[in-house]
Nucleic acid binder design. Structure first.
Lengths: 345, 345
DNA sequence: CTGTTAGCGCGTTCAG
DNA sequence: CTGAACGCGCTAACAG
């Protein structure tokens, strides 16, 4: 049987409420230093640990943050990313990064515990039973997220991760996909490329992230005064484009870059000698792709950490905000200056 | 203000305890079907959600399982696995796989929530505040885990993951590292190799997993009547061994296999033509290593899922057990039959 | 079959 | 400066 506050009180020769005051840490209660000292000593000797169930009931708070990862354990739609075993490994890396980010931030901020709800498909009321003070919803980037809409009605403070499509009342932290893709595109432009194509489903895929990445590509092209080309999403049309003068490829994802690389290689084209190739995500194994894939680092852990902070701010009364975490270039060996254009000779 | 049980009771014209009986789901309480029906209807209409804090206090249980991942967010000791950014990505894949496994099993078993404790270095009492009914401790495979020793004294049911070195009172689920390495070694033996070396720190590394992997290698060699060679852990000695007739390499990890591959290639040796190479872990990107690395799949998610089940069994009174999850071969293109030995011509 | 009663263990008044 | 009293919302035992 665990030690209760009453036993500590008896052993210290005080009342239970005095023990509570001492251990609460709040200085607002005036307790004689000597008494406080004795209480603390007895509590330590007895190994007293306050019961959170009772405390939560009394204070109507838990200090815990809920985490819903719609993505955890989900498998990717094959058609989007190719080999399902590979893409599920990618998914897991993101999950791990997100957990690491959440966990690190929670520790920093003194959050006692994160309550992770297992799997998807929970009814709204699951989150309203007083188990948590607020909720982080890690959205599935490849699917919709109806949960947010219903949560927006509830009084529980919510911060969404990995999306920017949220109701007014919900905070959001996403990776700056558009900015990252613009960075990648600008890098190629800076190397001297002018005919640059976006490789992937992009806006047509219906996937929010991918659409934003294509928008970032288009934005960077536009601000350099270059024409944004139509997105390509298969090997043959990519090869056709290269034959027509395209010298650089911005792939929607690193896995997409790997696919593009295979297509280029099978046609005898070299990277970066004949075509420059840049990916997005900096997935594990990217250094093995295309002889070392230049890419855009996807700050999943940073996003998650910022999400915890945003939720804590909401809990202390701040209004919901939408934030973007900047991505950054990771340059390896798949991008280089273009060969002199053959059609000028 | 949330709806409370009393309001449901009033609206349904019954007492609070009747509402409790109906909504508890336990059939042991005799409540007239008609009454139960009415209560359920009113509860639904009002959007009543029972308060877990009060329930937990009353029942002295939470249904929640605690999760400590000593590994989450930790960075690898560089000297063990090479490039820190790469090995931390590997770590995150495992974290993600473990979370996916935990999450999936929790959903299957009806566990309402997993309580993830952020970061390492928690004092023992952190876990004894009644927040959870039992604890899963995911051990850091590259470090020790003193936490288990102290938890063994406590009354909280504990199941350790990713280790076999646990006190009597603690359950354990680990990947069968030895069995997996034996599988890999037997595969090479089956192809006709006889001079096979283990590449990695192995027993000398002090890392439990790696020691077991080397033991598995040695076991497989012994049962084929072949001599187990001393483990090698750097490029030059590997090349020396190959020149002396070694035709196949069992690498401790996939990252180790990547390093071995680089050493072999830089000496002009081809894989698998000149030397067969097999790894361990099946990390993301393994299909890009050594032209497609044959390896051993590391069932992290399966291990985690089994851990949840093991903990649930403990909660229902079963004695702690130690379990192993079998690994399995993933054959790609880095292993092949040896060339005919040059020294026989 | 249903209602009444009595806490679960703690934090927070308010007297003294 | 300290302690007594109260109740957070629910469920288990018992009485009717």
């Amino acid at each position: 049987m665990r030690i209760r506050i009453k036993e500590v009180a008896e052993r210290a020769g005080v009342s239970a409420s005095t023990v509570s005051k001492v251990l609460s840490g709040h200085d607002v209660y005036a307790v004689r230093a000597e008494t406080a000292q004795r209480v603390r000593q007895v509590a330590r000797d007895l190994g007293y640990v306050p019961d959170v169930a009772a405390r939560n009931l009394r204070t109507r708070r838990t200090g815990q943050l809920g985490v819903v990862l719609e993505a955890v354990g989900a498998s990717e739609p094959d058609e989007l990313l190719g080999d399902p075993s590979v893409s599920s490994a990618v998914r897991r890396t993101f999950d791990g990064a997100i957990m690491a980010g959440l966990s690190g931030a929670a520790r920093e901020l003194g959050v006692p515990a994160l309550v992770v709800y297992p799997g998807g498909g929970h009814a709204l009321h699951t989150f309203l039973d007083g188990r948590v003070d607020g909720l982080l919803v890690g959205c599935d980037p490849l699917r919709g997220h109806g949960l947010l809409a219903s949560l927006a009605q509830a009084t529980l403070p919510v911060v969404a991760l990995w999306t920017q499509r949220v109701p007014e009342s919900v905070g959001a932290v996403d990776v700056d996909h558009a900015g990252g893709a613009a960075l990648a595109t600008a890098h190629l432009i800076g190397l001297g490329h002018t005919r640059i194509v976006f490789y992937g489903g992009g806006i047509r895929s219906g996937v929010e992230h991918f659409a934003r990445r294509q928008e970032g590509y288009a934005r960077a092209m536009a601000s350099a005064g270059l024409p944004a080309l139509a997105a390509l999403h298969d090997g043959p049309s990519l090869l056709h484009a290269v034959r027509e003068g395209v010298s650089a490829v911005v792939a929607e994802t690193d896995l997409g870059a790997a696919a593009a690389y295979r297509a280029l290689r099978s046609a005898g084209l070299r990277v970066p000698d004949d075509v420059s190739l840049i990916g997005f995500d900096d997935i594990q194994g990217a250094e093995y792709i295309a002889g070392g894939l230049s890419t855009v680092y996807h700050p999943a852990a940073e996003m998650a950490a910022e999400g915890v902070q945003a939720l804590m701010r909401r809990l202390s009364g701040e209004a919901p905000r939408q934030q973007l975490i900047p991505a950054r270039l990771v340059l390896r060996r798949s991008t280089a200056a273009p060969r002199r254009a053959t059609d000028t000779s």
